[in-house]
């Protein structure tokens, strides 16, 4: 019964974010908001109540002036494959109503707003704070609803939303390919809005299962360890929890790589 995302024709879309290149500019955040009809309020400074499918975190090395260092880390949904990549992402396995699901064909964790009844169990399950609840009715200032994107449905109050890896773009690309009589997408035919916008070219998106794709080459996922990166400069957030994310980070700075996971005091001393 167990399924895995091996190389059986299934895609495993993923993202590699180069933190050496990332400037922390926030374009990815805004590109995502603009693409995905993310609502906004007059005051968005309470970050525990501010919907940002993509959020850029500021990491600090904890040292004092002038040895202080900072690094920016963009955080979309990790589209976790769960233990052994069997599709039991932390969030998917807990949703009582199958309002969020794991696609074996793409590796994408979906979110169906009209199915979600807002119990927020998935939010409790996700350690990345990727999931956002619509505490408020989405309201656009008069006239501004004109820029809403018809490819993505607007969410009503009381449901959870999160980064979809711009799944609608996948659907559009597949439709187009289908009309042209193709079954397979080229690497550049399906790219997320944040990848496309990033002015620093810090984000790479593609099929981790496809050795031709840049994402695969950048991290060299290890199939024996559920896709753990073999590139020593690459890492995933909270690798030790075995959530098995499909978002990888690359940094040449050791303290940055170490900021991606928790270590015991004695382990830290050894590193």
């Amino acid at each position: 019964m167990k399924q895995t995302q091996g190389n059986n024709g299934n895609k495993k879309f993923g993202m590699v974010i180069n933190l050496d290149l990332c400037t922390g500019c926030g374009s990815c955040m805004v590109a995502c908001m603009a693409e995905n009809n993310v609502p906004f309020k007059e005051d968005e400074t309470d970050k525990l109540d501010s919907i940002t499918w993509m959020r850029v975190y500021k990491l600090k090395n904890g040292k004092s002036w002038p040895n202080a260092d900072i690094c920016y880390l963009p955080r979309p949904c990790m589209h976790c494959g769960g233990h052994g990549d069997h599709g039991h992402s932390p969030c998917v396995s807990v949703c009582p109503a199958v309002a969020t699901d794991y696609s074996m064909a793409t590796g994408i964790v979906s979110q169906i707003y009209t199915r979600c009844f807002g119990c927020r169990y998935c939010m409790a399950a996700c350690p990345y704070h990727v999931r956002y609840f619509n505490w408020w009715d989405p309201v656009w200032p008069e006239g501004m609803e004109r820029f809403l994107n018809p490819d993505v449905s607007v969410r009503m109050r009381g449901v959870v939303e999160k980064c979809s890896f711009c799944f609608h773009r996948y659907q559009l690309a597949m439709n187009k390919a289908f009309l042209e009589g193709r079954r397979v997408l080229e690497e550049d035919e399906y790219q997320s809005a944040c990848t496309q916008a990033c002015p620093a070219g810090a984000i790479t998106f593609g099929d981790l299962n496809n050795p031709e794709h840049a994402v695969h080459q950048l991290v060299q996922p290890d199939p024996k360890h559920a896709g753990r990166p073999r590139n020593p400069k690459a890492f995933r957030l909270l690798e030790r929890l075995e959530t098995n994310p499909k978002v990888y980070y690359v940094s040449s700075r050791k303290w940055v790589r170490q900021s991606g996971d928790n270590y015991l005091k004695k382990e830290k001393q050894k590193i």
Binding site: P96, C116, M156, V159
Partner: peptide, 21 residues
């Protein structure tokens, strides 16, 4: 507590057997 009480019954109708809830 649920955001969409009117859809509360989805928990029965679209039940996910993996979920503790």
């Amino acid at each position: 507590d649920v955001g969409q009480p009117l859809r509360g019954w989805f928990i029965f109708w679209h039940a996910n057997v993996h979920s503790m809830l």
